[in-house]
Lab assay of single mutants.
Amino acid sequence: MPSETPQAEVGPTGCPHRSGPHSAKGSLEKGSPEDKEAKEPLWIRPDAPSRCTWQLGRPASESPHHHTAPAKSPKILPDILKKIGDTPMVRINKIGKKFGLKCELLAKCEFFNAGGSVKDRISLRMIEDAERDGTLKPGDTIIEPTSGNTGIGLALAAAVRGYRCIIVMPEKMSSEKVDVLRALGAEIVRTPTNARFDSPESHVGVAWRLKNEIPNSHILDQYRNASNPLAHYDTTADEILQQCDGKLDMLVASVGTGGTITGIARKLKEKCPGCRIIGVDPEGSILAEPEELNQTEQTTYEVEGIGYDFIPTVLDRTVVDKWFKSNDEEAFTFARMLIAQEGLLCGGSAGSTVAVAVKAAQELQEGQRCVVILPDSVRNYMTKFLSDRWMLQKGFLKEEDLTEKKPWWWHLRVQELGLSAPLTVLPTITCGHTIEILREKGFDQAPVVDEAGVILGMVTLGNMLSSLLAGKVQPSDQVGKVIYKQFKQIRLTDTLGRLSHILEMDHFALVV
């Protein structure tokens, strides 16, 4: 994948999101292997301009796509893939009243899908469409860049269908997702969380590099694949309309690839034109409109599966009536509230959605109805927002919020430890010299600072030695090549209790 991002070429006709291997024109390309080798690009942008032909009021008969309808489940399912879809609609009884809503608040519980998330729908649909058009064949390999849930859905379907599955996901995604993927037989590649989507090191860039190296491999490409919004247009939206008897006044959905909100909203605009569509985008993402909503100094966020630093091709923002931004604290607070007060075992993005819903639905009156999409299960986040310690460490809970008995030293300040200034190293000294210094002084790690004293990161003896043994660096290389740029900081005025929580999850903390 090139470091400079080429513009994806656009073909003359058809839909841009065809499933299957992508040609340089962004659509299915038939021909000899030699032709494909000559024409197939190194990668295709996940934010390529959409060429979708959908228009409100256009006859369904003019759609270029294969459409399906929700099917009634048999008493005995032939395999677990038949437990994807037909998820329950559940009334939220307490939270709406707590925040003064007059309307009825309903939750579409997508964590009841077989793999635990709304992404099971698009995973199965992308595979079925690729099999139907002859792209996927027995023994082929599926590769997908994902925040985890699409990966789980694909790995689940691949396990049943017999495909090899490789999932490329950023490091910030939970260990629970990784464990589930491994249990399903998927191979996992992790990428830096802070890598831009168009960087060769991003999950998108690495996935395309693997595709170019592995024979008979395919990126189904949830960011561009029409099967993504079509899955929701054909099934999720129809289920909502049936469950609500066609009567709903507002739908609120958090947005990642945009397939969920695009597919549902398009069908609702056709069948229930008075329904307002509300999009939820986390602070630090750029999906919301108008652009002024996205202006923030924050560039990272903890909530998973929603928000991006690019506009995915499948996201149709014209069908969203209003956007709201959400933050991590309210997302996790509301997710825990949904679990504790409503018994809905949902993930953090569901918290984002409901946090926005109780604001947006203030305009609705008694007798009206708001539906929220709860995308995934708490299963993926047992060591994250479900953990009091994690919430404390991230600053989303305060010590006084917890009532468990603490040891005698818990409320003492870090400054009472009488710490001395640490050994520091410059980023320009060599790895070999740094190892000598650390061994001589008896230290395992040291902060790396520039000549102005600005902290650049941390270097550890173990990481340097393993990097040297693996051949990633040489003793003569500058130590700046092996620094940890993500590390926890703590102030002298913070409590030892807070430091204790940090050290339970990290090997060190830097006192500043």
Rank of each mutant, 00 (worst) to 15 (best):
P2K: 07
P2T: 12
Q7G: 08
Q7D: 09
V10A: 09
P21Y: 02
H22A: 05
S23F: 10
S23W: 13
S27I: 15
S32C: 02
E34C: 04
D35A: 12
K36L: 14
L42K: 02
L42G: 13
W43Y: 11
T53P: 07
P59T: 15
P59I: 11
S61C: 12
S61K: 02
H65F: 05
H67G: 05
T68H: 12
S73F: 12
S73C: 14
L77M: 11
L77D: 02
I80G: 08
P88G: 06
V90P: 05
N93R: 04
N93V: 02
K94S: 13
K94A: 09
G96Q: 02
G96R: 13
K97V: 07
K98S: 12
F99W: 12
K102V: 07
K108A: 02
R121G: 02
I122T: 04
S123L: 02
L124V: 02
I127A: 10
E128Y: 13
R132F: 08
R132W: 04
R132M: 15
D133W: 14
P138E: 08
D140L: 02
T141G: 05
T141L: 12
I142K: 02
E144Y: 05
E144I: 07
G148I: 02
I152A: 04
A155K: 02
L156Y: 04
A159G: 05
Y163L: 05
R164S: 14
I166N: 08
P170I: 02
M173E: 02
E176A: 04
V178N: 02
D179I: 02
V180K: 04
R190A: 02
T191V: 02
T193M: 10
R196H: 02
E201R: 13
V206E: 07
A207D: 07
L210Y: 02
L210G: 08
N212A: 05
N216F: 07
S217R: 04
H218A: 02
I219W: 02
I219L: 08
Q222M: 05
S227Y: 15
S227L: 02
N228I: 02
D234P: 02
T235Q: 15
T235R: 04
Q242F: 08
Q243D: 14
Q243Y: 14
C244W: 04
D245T: 02
A253P: 05
A253T: 13
V255S: 04
G263L: 04
G263Y: 02
R266C: 05
